[in-house]
Design a protein around this nucleic acid. Structure first.
Length: 765
DNA sequence: GAGCACTGC
């Protein structure tokens, strides 16, 4: 019997003959469910692969079918799986240098793995570092199949971003053919799809940390996988340290050597078993993690990536700034000379994106009609989501897209169709100066790791090209990787979390990269002033605990506690919810004036906090009225909300996020036993409360019209986004001090300087 | 006279 069989399926059969387990991914266009069924029939019924390819003539090795067949066989035999290597291939022609034309595997990919060996390594080692990429969805399934979820235990997979947790969980549920929320689920801030039967749980690092506040031994998990550890976000760094300790405590508990109490409290009577820890990192260099975990074993996994040709400029770059002219020249060089495929350009911010976009449009007008088929699109996080969505749509037929993006396209989002990347080598980074209590936002050269990540974006769908707008020598001079976030941020939140987890000795805490002593001291001082820590730096009960449990910056948590005393908790909940989202008022440059007029409708002469309050309240009243009048359903509500936002130049996704936040923190404070009361129209009381809450961040007008920040003595300016920009109040409190082109204060409210003396005495208990 | 990289709870 002879069956008709495509080459990929034949390859699977050949590999299965070598006892290599093949996993066929469902989303492949070629491998339909029908073919999968066919494949399993073949596996079970045929001994010789030769029997299943029609036209195969064993006697005539020169026949085209025979030569292809023998090529396939050679490939199958040459994959180095017998040697014990763990091997992922995507798609197959990439791993084994065969041309696309020859194989027709373009949209087909599968995963070949020595699953058994991987599981063996995990059973042997309590900590395993896995480098490379492309295993976020597979590894948890292997672990499940190997019995790591027995006795109701879970496998936790931590991701740095919500979107990654959600997409991975959905994909795995589909691959396992289970409903999301059953065996596989995800849990993120405003969305939890897990149930009591969930065994593979995808979540974000910070949520897992919060779980440890309730269950310090994380006793529900048998394995925890920390994905994308190379990104070194604050949350992963803290999580990695915490897990190290949890693992030690759990093995002590198992061996009966642990002191009862301490970190063991709250393990909720569950039987404690050892914890397996898997750190996954895309960087080639696993040394940092191996050393941190006392010489842990590292395995490398081949990622699924097409080759990307890297091109450098010959011209030496004198300074690190983005040369817009050079960017535009490169865009047109690609557009006019290269094969079809969209272009992705990494720029540093909205301003730069808008000016490059304008330059591209101008230049297009000077080209002949048939060369004008280039579509410039912008994407950055503050851009409203309707406009963000445009970059994901394919370009009209015959057109080439050029996507002008910030770092958002480096990791957070993947744009389909990209074959060319332009990397000017710059990035805007935020760093915190603890001595001044000030953030700076400046453009600096990107790191090598970042440059590699960027170029990788050209090879997701086929071989690509990356144009680096600097020379190879300059690339060599770049830092290997970006400085871990924990070394350049305000630590008060991290330290409060650690204190709440029971770690009192912050200076002796086992960070992978230790923040500076000054940064730690500053955070401890702040927490002490906020009433979260006692004089000897222990967690203040109950305030410190309450603040640690609120999903807010400690300064905002403190504001809620004070507002409870000032009887304006309702107002402060709204304020804090609005302050925790970015860019409530976003507008394109073209409609700036219109938007400003609209904002004046909400603007309060007292400042930004009251302005936010009225935006929130007006939107709320509008929704309530509409919903009452139309008795509408949730779908309609969304539409009403979007329309209101559009009419009022408010960013609807920001407002939505603020509303979610409000509901969550309201629930939180109610659980803390607070009674949510409103000060009604007594805005004086509310402003006094703002002054008491943010007394550390006050600024006073000077003779020359500039302001002096009272804490650091810095000369500062009112940010143009503030409603107080054109007025010049004598004294204000603010929420943010940030240096860009100038030292700016943002989110301000006018106060009476006399209130400050009163507020600090409030703090001096 | 003039502006805000990106996440996360």
């Amino acid at each position: 019997m002879v069956l008709s069989l495509g080459q990929p399926l034949l390859m699977l059969v050949l590999l299965e003959k070598r006892n290599i387990r093949c996993i066929v991914r469902k989303e492949s266009r070629i491998v339909t469910a029908k073919k999968q069924k066919l494949f399993s029939e073949i596996k079970n019924n045929f001994r010789n692969a030769e029997d299943i390819w029609p036209g195969h003539d064993k006697q005539n090795p020169k026949s085209p079918v025979a030569s292809r067949f023998s090529m396939m066989q050679k490939i199958a035999e040459s994959l180095p799986i017998a040697s014990g290597a763990i091997y992922f291939t995507y798609p197959i022609h990439n791993g084994i240098s065969m041309s696309v034309e020859e194989t027709n595997y373009d949209s087909f990919f599968f995963l070949i793995t020595a699953e058994k060996r991987l599981i063996e390594e995990i059973q042997k080692n309590d900590i395993l570092i896995i480098t490379g990429s492309g295993k976020t969805t597979q590894l948890p399934q292997f672990l499940f199949n190997a019995g790591f979820c027995r006795e109701g235990k879970m496998i936790g997979i931590s991701q740095p971003r919500c979107i990654a947790a959600v997409t991975a969980a959905k994909k795995v549920a589909e691959e396992c053919d289970v409903q999301l929320g059953q065996r596989v689920g995800y849990s993120i801030r405003f969305d939890n799809t897990t149930s009591s039967s969930t065994r593979l749980k995808y979540t974000t690092g910070d949520l897992l940390l919060r779980e440890a506040l309730v269950d310090p031994l994380l006793s529900r998990y048998s394995v925890i996988i920390v994905d994308e550890a190379h990104e070194r976000t604050v949350h992963t760094d803290v999580l990695l340290a915490l897990l190290k300790k949890v693992q030690l405590d759990r093995s002590k508990a198992v061996n009966g050597t642990s002191e009862i109490g301490g970190v063991l409290r709250g393990c909720q009577g569950r039987k404690v078993s050892p914890l397996k820890l898997i750190i996954m990192s895309a960087s080639l260099d696993a040394r940092v993690f191996c050393e941190y975990y006392g010489g842990a074993k590292a395995l490398h996994v081949q990622g699924r990536q097409f080759p990307v040709e890297i091109l450098y400029t010959v011209r030496p770059v004198t300074d690190y700034y983005v040369d817009a002219a050079l960017v535009v020249i490169t865009i047109f060089q690609i557009h006019l000379k290269e094969k079809p495929g969209d272009i992705l350009v990494f720029l540093t911010g909205q301003d730069e994106i808008e000016s490059v976009k304008r330059l591209v449009q101008e230049r297009l007008e000077h080209l002949p009609e048939d060369k004008r088929k280039l579509l410039p699109l912008a994407i950055f996080s503050a851009l409203p989501s309707e406009q963000q969505r445009r970059v994901f749509a394919p370009a009209p037929i015959g057109f080439r897209k050029v996507v002008l993006a910030t770092n958002i396209a480096e990791t957070s989002i993947t744009i389909p169709g990209i074959r060319y990347v332009i990397d000017p080598g710059c990035v805007k980074v935020r760093t915190y100066d603890p001595s001044k209590g000030m953030d700076t936002l400046v453009v600096v050269p990107a790191s090598k790791a970042q440059a590699r990540q960027r170029s990788g974006r050209a090879g997701r769908e086929g071989p690509g090209k990356c144009f680096r707008l600097y020379s190879e020598r300059e690339f060599e001079k770049l830092e290997d990787s970006t400085k871990p976030e924990i070394k350049r941020c305000n630590l008060s939140n991290v330290i409060l979390q650690l204190k709440a987890l029971g770690y009192d000795d912050i200076f002796g805490f086992d960070f992978i990269d230790k923040p500076s002593r000054g940064a730690i001291v500053k955070a401890l001082e702040e927490l002490h002033l906020f009433g979260a820590l006692t004089d000897d730096c222990k967690l203040e009960k109950p305030a410190g605990d309450q603040m640690a449990r609120l999903p807010l910056d400690p300064v905002y948590s403190r504001a809620l506690i004070l507002a409870n005393q000032f009887n304006c908790l309702e107002e402060m909940l709204i304020t804090v919810a609005m302050l925790s989202v970015e860019s409530i008022f976003y507008h394109s440059r073209e409609r700036r004036e219109e938007a400003r007029t609209s904002r004046n409708h909400f603007a309060s002469v007292e400042g930004d906090h009251l302005t936010y309050l009225s935006v929130y309240r007006e939107s709320n009243e509008f929704f309530l009225e509409k919903i009452k009048a139309e008795n509408s359903k949730a779908e309609v509500d969304k539409k009403i909300m979007r329309e209101w936002c559009k009419d009022n130049f408010v960013n609807s996704s920001s407002l939505k996020h603020a509303r979610h936040t409000y509901r969550q923190i309201r629930r939180n404070v109610e659980q803390m036993g607070f009674n949510v009361s409103s000060c009604g129209n007594d805005m004086l009381e509310y402003r006094r409360c703002l002054a008491a809450s943010f007394f550390l961040k006050a600024a006073q007008r000077q003779m020359d019209g500039t302001y002096r920040a009272l804490e650091s003595g810095e000369t500062v300016h009112i940010h143009p986004t503030s409603v107080l920009f054109r007025s010049n109040p004598e004294c204000v409190i603010f929420n943010e001090l940030m240096q860009t082109s100038k030292k700016y204060i943002k989110n301000l409210t006018r106060i009476d300087p006399l209130w400050l003396a009163g507020s600090s005495s409030l703090q001096n208990r």
